[in-house]
């Protein structure tokens, strides 16, 4: 196993809701900016696509065990040979869900590694806020609610 990045967040929600947040375009467009589109079956293609139909990220579904594990290949459609691999692990721990996102298997000299290192922390924070408050927010926007808990 070779994973260059691992991101973890704990979310007060259920594994099923996290799975839906990753795989349902109605949800992804609210906190991740664009639609994640696929039938999420092993061997199918998936894409992260704008509302105008422009694919930003494309790949294949490599493993799919709802609601706990999803493995995708990941590439910019303009540079399809620069392919990497993303694994989502969704585990229920008491009344919370721990979501791990592992991004690795980068090709030597990949330009994707740096981009995803900046992107994932924002996507995960945004997903957490979306699932915990039910509020739709722009991926790059901040919170409206009080931050001190």
């Amino acid at each position: 196993m070779s994973n260059d990045y691992i991101y973890t967040t704990y979310i007060k929600t259920t594994a099923e809701k996290v799975w839906a947040a990753i795989t349902n375009p109605e949800f992804t467009r609210q906190y991740w900016g664009h639609d994640n589109v696929s039938d999420w079956k092993v061997g199918s293609t998936w894409q992260h696509v704008t509302s105008e139909g422009q694919a930003r990220i494309v790949g294949q579904v490599l493993e799919s065990v709802p609601p706990n594990r999803l493995v995708l290949s990941w590439a910019n459609p303009a540079n399809p040979t620069d392919e990497s691999r993303v694994t989502f692990e969704i585990d229920t721990i008491e009344d919370m869900v721990r979501m791990n996102v592992m991004h690795g298997n980068f090709k030597a000299g990949s330009s994707m590694a740096e981009a995803v290192a900046k992107g994932w922390p924002r996507v995960l924070s945004s997903m957490k806020t979306f699932l915990e408050t039910g509020k739709a927010l722009d991926t790059w926007a901040g919170h409206d609610s009080d931050c001190a808990k």
């Binding site: 973890t8 922390p121 995960l124």
Partner: peptide
């Protein structure tokens, strides 16, 4: 051991914002 910057990002999103 892997660096997980997600909690720092949450703080960033809260108090720094866009």
């Amino acid at each position: 051991h892997y660096l997980n910057p997600v909690p720092i990002n949450e703080i960033y999103m809260c108090w720094i914002g866009q």
